[in-house]
């Protein structure tokens, strides 16, 4: 009984130490990744926190379990997509000026806004493929593993997403 209790405390401490390292290493990139889906800074922060907390619970149960950044992105993508589905849509396409208001002043570069607008036009599955392969830096095979899909399907989605984004950027230009 005592051993179980001590083991529980050890697990919690080890999980806490590991989660702290994971948070420090991945929080900024993961939060920005999530924000591309939810397009709202606060919502992105909440969702990212939930992802790390889910990781903590998992590590606490089994501290020896390997937990990669891929797991974080997978969980974040699932959370984000289910949030999008819950909200039915990511919200109406807003004018550039209003969209810019959700970014900090120093982020309002034309490229950033254009890209955000183009990404807004994508269905969530295509967006996940584009973000994982371009932003998070995974190969199509790795993204396929994260999304539970095939490498070919990821490449197809990236191709279709590019068409949609090209159209959106063309309309902006």
């Amino acid at each position: 009984m005592e051993n179980v209790f001590v083991l529980g405390v050890d697990n919690a401490l080890e999980a806490e130490a590991r989660i702290e390292r994971l948070v420090i290493e991945h929080q900024a990139k993961l939060a920005r990744y999530v924000r591309r889906f939810v397009n709202d800074r606060e919502a992105a922060l909440d969702l990212t926190q939930d992802v790390f907390f889910a990781a903590y619970r998992m590590l606490k149960a089994d501290p020896s379990r390997p937990l990669t950044a891929g797991w974080l992105y997978k969980t974040a993508t699932n959370h984000a997509i289910s949030l999008l589905r819950k909200n039915k849509r990511r919200g109406p396409t807003v004018p550039l000026e209003e969209l810019g208001s959700s970014f900090r002043l120093d982020e309002r570069s034309a490229e950033s806004l254009d890209l955000q607008r183009a990404l807004d036009a994508l269905p969530s599955e295509q967006l996940a493929c584009v973000m994982l392969t371009t932003y998070a830096g995974y190969s199509s095979a790795e993204a396929a593993l994260i999304l539970g899909s095939s490498s070919e399907a990821v490449r197809q989605r990236v191709c279709r997403a590019t068409r949609t984004m090209r159209a959106a950027l063309g309309a902006t230009a």
Binding site: I19, Q27, R32, A44, T134
Partner: peptide
């Protein structure tokens, strides 16, 4: 290439979200 353009935009991002304290506090 798509990857290059998205990466370039990502580089220009200045939002540095920090949630270490919040998460540890929650734990």
């Amino acid at each position: 290439p798509l990857r290059g353009s998205v990466e370039a935009v990502a580089q220009s991002e200045t939002w540095r979200p920090s949630m270490t304290d919040e998460i540890l506090e929650r734990i």
